[in-house]
Design a protein around this nucleic acid. Sequence first.
DNA 1: TTACCTGCAAAAGGTTTGCAGGCTA
DNA 2: TAGCCTGCAAACCTTTTGCAGGTAA
Lengths: 146, 146
Amino acid sequence: MKKKNTQQVEFFREKCRSLGLNVTPQRMAIYKALVGDETHPSPDAVFRRVRLSHPTISHATVYKTLDTFERHGIISRLTPLHESVRYDPMTSQHHHIVCVRCKKVVNLSDGELGTIQIPAQVKREYRVLGYSVHFSVLCASCKDRE
Amino acid sequence: MKKKNTQQVEFFREKCRSLGLNVTPQRMAIYKALVGDETHPSPDAVFRRVRLSHPTISHATVYKTLDTFERHGIISRLTPLHESVRYDPMTSQHHHIVCVRCKKVVNLSDGELGTIQIPAQVKREYRVLGYSVHFSVLCASCKDRE
DNA sequence: TTACCTGCAAAAGGTTTGCAGGCTA
DNA sequence: TAGCCTGCAAACCTTTTGCAGGTAA
């Protein structure tokens, strides 16, 4: 346990070094909080957790740090289309092609993708209402602009 | 074209009738705006579009109506976890099991699901960076509470 | 020492709510 | 007519921004 913790710390230091990021106590605390959290936390959840060991941390630092981590690939975002809620008039099962840069979304009909085998363990543990595949892409125009 | 429009109107009237929803000019306008929109619009985008033909409509009505439509299954939401941004410390490709009721999210490792064949047309048109499958479920405790 | 990072406070969106008046069925 | 729906305005909540001071390298 102790050893695992040390490994995490070293991993993070090395990662920051290679990315040119300063290692600050706040960043370290936020990183540790994330690694130990299976709940896919919101920024505020991270804030509340980090504050236990680091009472003077601010929301702004948490937001900025999470953003920095994400831009450098240290963590990922569960909610890539967060700018606002978005709706789809299609209610039957289908899939989405999302441009990570301009956030355009295109539907892909269910039939165009083979059937996905839902793992038995998932079926056993949950009532599965449906699934959809989300492709992260660069669209034609964003690809050109890179 | 004219005929298709009439069909939409009738379909919507019937849908509302069967759900016990009043058919109002605002709801009709919002429904029409959605059906004609492939861009997966935000509430504000719907608002701006509807306002062209219905200048006195309010944001509140648009928000309430979209929510009503979604709760009755007339449209679907692209962003089920919109309450706030959420992060995941895992950056390698994996999938998500999301409880539609309590919004808990559990990871499913990539290997536990067979390989998905990315349609050739998608590969041709986009630079595909990755994909993830999103299972909409009721978790054990939410299932019991239904 | 220098550039980067933090924390505060204020501002900026996006979304929700309460309520009075209006409309559908 | 009764209950549902709309529009306004204010409140709310999450997230971003600017800036002055502090810290890592």
